[in-house]
Design a protein around this nucleic acid. Structure first.
Length: 854
RNA sequence: GCGAAAGUGGCGGAAUUGGCAGACGCACCAGACUUAGGAUCUGGCGGGUAAAACCGUGAGGGUUCGAGUCCCUCCUUUCGCACCA
């Protein structure tokens, strides 16, 4: 049976013209149906495979209801890469899952009276349908849904392991509380001091008992290992460094005069301690109340500062408020010189950083300077620039903070360079027992308790006799009850389910109360990518063997908004898993890529702006291929992308052109081979044929190097468009047979192969039209031949004094001297140089000639 | 305030190392084919000119035979951090 006959069996009685028409919906539906019948198609080989592995991962979405364009862009990048790596012969793991716990499900439940579970799983179904329709090559056998017990039970298991190691602990802490929602809010859900859902409602700070993970134990390693993350964007590495915020310094203990009280300050500049002229405490510092006693005036002032700080913190304006404070009436003794320093309370001191107390050195710290100026506190200069004879700091140059300076007025330390002084003075403090060198981090322990329903129950019990008791491993999972009424009442919803709350103590058998808080959803996403490697494993959280084959993740792709939280938690979790002996790697992700946002009319897509473009709409109108190709073509993937619908239309026209060409020439060839005509000569003969061959190999080169290097898929696609334009321009030579049918065929094959990572539907269709029956995904990526890609003749400009004056055509690689001779011999140039003297001729081989003349 | 990235036609963007600025696409204009066109094909398309010259990559300086690209000063936009002691 000839190929032509086959085609006709498949697509019934069509006219040739019709067959060339690109019907995206029909083609996509056809392949969609076929792919549905092959669920194993995107399945990776098992971890025992000898093939080189490649793990490409896109950040799993929250099942909010429907995909948005940001998702489509993210997954189009990942899918192009996954398909490319498959074609390069790698064993590719390309999974997808759902970050399915979280507050929106509860809000939706309130609004529509749908249980969170049902709402979430419906959304999952819909979004999975969208992903499949878009043709993303996910292996759905490894799907992970975090709200299902077979996943979250391992969150609970990890929690127990953390608890055993002292990495999970409970303490009282401040939380954001929305009185309207009657729940705790995450920091991200507080917008300008108000609840994100109730924009009029001020968020309150409440003290609650909370569970924490001791991420600060890993602060040092998390910081150090950032150096190893060479495949991460520098921006993300910097953000993580700042977030951890390591600073080296010393703690110094000050006695309070006429009291038992001692106040420890943290400073990075112990070298300036002789310049300290007061102590400043955070308003919430525990010593404050003891120092001011019940002086009503001071108490009022204190309350005002506490209040002000809280509001500034909520509004995000902390740092902008004018500095002020009050004198407590008490004095502290500087342990270095026994001087009495007044103790103040100041609004610019934060309880959560360092020790919540500082020594104030107005001469050498901007903030202290501002404060001292306001309250007329003494300003004492104790360091000077090294060449201080010439530049003794005047009042106007204060505060003077340079690290390269000399100490003065500092007793026996005077004359030391300040680096040396820091060391000596720290040692002095240690020897005398009133201080020590120490390191402080900005990073706080990770508070994971949420007073919400839709999350992983924390597997802990409170026994009247035994206190805090972990749920035994064998009793996991602690199931989230289904039959719960979501209301706006206060407290954890689970606390209102007696069957859940009331339990037996596993230690003494007595009455116990279950923990009713659930875990932060960032717990779910901290380790999900390990689960993908053996998602159905029932006996353990992860399959260590599979993990050691697949990890680290070769390429992780997602939005930059996760640069800190998700990615730092994931790194932390990995290190803990390593210390638990579960895995060998210390970092989860080898290379990270952060794609730009999708915007429309210059603004981020949002419902309130009314500029949302729905993927379903795009797919319905132009097809998945056009939507995907446009998402990659409109901008380089790391930059923001401005969505323009007629751009999608342009891409669709391009695909239609490809479809027309390939289908037409495939039919032509079939006709020729049926007629025994057009047997290839094997050699490319005509110049048009040679030009096409060169263009093909240049295109292959550009697309291949873009995949391996810069990921500028916009230029890859532009290159393919150029190739298609070139083929189309050679139409008459192709039809006439001047370009051999064999060459045309090979060229079309390569064209389709190059398009395959970007536009899987049309590529599969055209592959079939070319008479191929193999699975496109497993075809090997075409190699380019540098010899064939080489230009033979190059047109180069000739400049006189940097201005283009003529052009000549020279053979590629012509020696400089010959190029120069030809340039000078050029008629136009010759005429223009009349009466001038040539000073110098610069020849850039294969690029240009510049004649410097006077 | 600190840090990072970016600024190129009417628009999205190209120019990987200092070497023809504006690839590719959109929009627009003219034409061809057509009963029809939101299909397809051909040509044009930074400003300027009859054509040239000339001008042109946020602004101003500099280095160089040559600068979108390197250096200095400044402006604008976006993002991140922000009383971190």
């Amino acid at each position: 049976m000839s190929k032509q006959e086959k085609t006709e069996v498949l697509s019934a009685p069509e006219q040739p013209r019709d067959r060339e028409r690109y019907e995206a919906q029909r083609i996509e539906q056809k392949w969609f149906d076929r792919w549905q019948e092959q669920p194993e198609m995107y399945r990776a080989e098992p971890a025992t495979s000898a093939r080189k592995k490649y793990y490409v991962l896109e950040m799993l979405p929250y099942p909010s209801g429907a995909l948005h364009m940001g998702h489509v862009r993210n997954y189009s990048i990942g899918d192009a890469l996954a398909r490319f790596m498959w074609m390069k012969g790698y064993n590719v793991l390309h999974p997808m899952g759902w970050d399915a716990f979280g507050l929106p499900a509860e809000n939706a439940a309130l609004k529509n009276n749908t249980p969170p579970r049902e709402w979430t799983l419906n959304n999952v179904e819909n979004m999975k349908r969208q992903m499949k329709r878009l043709g993303f090559s996910y292996d759905w056998n490894t799907e992970v849904t975090t709200c299902l017990p077979d996943y979250y039970r391992w969150n609970q298991w990890f929690f127990l392991k953390f608890y055993e190691r002292g990495l999970a602990y409970r303490r009282k802490s401040k939380v954001n509380w929305c009185p309207e929602c009657a729940t705790v809010l995450a920091n991200e859900q507080v917008v300008n001091g108000c609840c994100w859902r109730h924009e009029e409602t001020q968020v309150e700070q409440r003290d609650l008992e909370q569970w924490f993970f001791r991420i600060t134990d890993y602060a040092e390693e998390l910081l150090r290992d950032i150096e190893k993350l060479e495949g991460w964007p520098e921006k993300v590495r910097t953000m993580q460094r700042n977030w951890i915020g390591r600073s080296e310094g010393a703690q110094v203990e000050f006695r309070v005069a006429d009291s038992e009280e001692k106040i420890t300050v943290f400073t990075t500049r112990i070298d300036t301690i002789f310049g300290a002229t007061s102590l400043q405490l955070a308003p919430e510092h525990p010593a404050v109340s003891r120092l001011i006693g019940n002086d009503p005036e001071l108490l009022t002032k204190l309350d005002a500062i506490v209040d002000e700080q809280r509001r500034a913190r909520e509004a995000g304006t902390i740092g902008e408020t004018e500095k002020h404070g009050f004198f407590t009436g008490a004095y502290a003794i500087n342990p270095f010189n026994q001087e009495k320093l007044p103790i103040w309370v100041a609004n610019y001191i934060l309880m959560e950083y360092g020790t919540g107390a500082i020594m104030s050195v107005p001469a050498h710290d901007e903030r202290d300077y501002e404060f001292a100026k306001k309250y007329d506190i003494e300003i004492r200069i104790v360091i000077l620039p090294r060449r201080h004879e010439e530049s003794r700091p005047e009042e106007a140059t204060l505060p003077y903070t340079a690290m390269d300076s000399l100490l003065i007025n500092s007793s026996e330390f005077s004359g030391l360079g300040n680096q040396e002084a820091i060391q000596k003075m720290t040692r002095h403090a240690e020897e005398k027992g009133f201080g020590k060198g120490t390191v402080t981090y900005r990073l706080r322990d990770w508070g994971i308790s949420r007073q919400r329903y839709w999350g992983t129950p924390i597997p802990m019990l409170y026994c009247e006799k035994c206190g805090i008791v972990p749920v035994p491993e064998k009793d996991l999972p602690v199931l989230l009850p289904d039959n719960i009424e979501i209301t706006q009442q206060g407290g954890s919803p689970l606390a209102r389910v007696p069957e859940f709350v009331n339990a037996k103590c596993p230690k003494c058998g007595g009455k116990a109360r279950r923990e009713t808080d659930t875990m932060d959803t960032f717990v779910d996403s901290s380790w999900y990518f390990y689960r993908y490697t053996n998602a159905k494993l029932a006996t353990a959280a992860i399959d260590s063997k599979a993990v050691s084959y697949w990890f680290p993740i070769d390429q992780y792709i997602g939005g930059v908004e996760h640069a800190i939280l998700h990615l730092i938690y994931s790194r932390f979790w990995t290190k803990v898993m390593r210390d638990l002996g579960l895995i060998k790697n210390s970092e989860p992700v080898e290379r990270l890529f952060t794609q730009g946002m999708v915007i429309k009319n210059g603004a981020k897509m949002s419902k309130s702006k009314g500029n949302v473009v729905s993927p379903d709409d795009m797919v319905g109108r132009y097809g998945a291929d056009s939507t995907r190709v446009y998402a990659l073509f409109a901008a380089p993937p790391d930059r923001d992308l401005d969505w323009q619908e007629n751009g999608v239309e342009g891409v669709s026209r391009f695909l239609a052109k490809v479809h027309r060409l390939v289908t037409r020439y495939a039919a032509l060839q079939n006709a020729k081979s049926a007629a025994g005509d057009g047997r290839p000569s094997g050699r490319v003969s005509s110049s048009v044929a040679r030009d096409l061959e060169r263009k093909l190999h240049q295109t292959l080169r550009r697309v291949s190097t873009d995949f391996e290097g810069r990921w500028h898929f916009n230029t890859s696609i532009a290159a393919i468009m150029e190739l298609v334009n070139a083929i189309s321009a050679a139409d008459s030579q192709i039809v006439s047979g001047e370009v051999s049918p064999q060459q045309v065929r090979l060229m079309l094959r390569d064209l389709v192969l190059m398009l395959a990572p970007f536009a899987p539907y049309i590529s599969s269709e055209l592959w079939e039209n070319l008479g191929e029956r193999s699975q496109l995904l497993r075809e090997s990526w075409p190699k380019f031949d540098p010899e064939l890609a080489r230009e033979e003749e190059i047109e180069i400009p000739i400049q006189i004094n940097g201005k283009n004056r003529s052009r000549i055509i020279v053979p590629a690689g012509l020696p400089e001297a010959d190029v120069q001779a030809r340039a000078l011999a050029d008629e136009k140039i010759h005429a223009l140089l009349e009466g001038k003297s040539v000073v110098k001729v610069i020849v850039v081989p294969d690029k240009l000639v510049n004649i410097v003349a006077r």
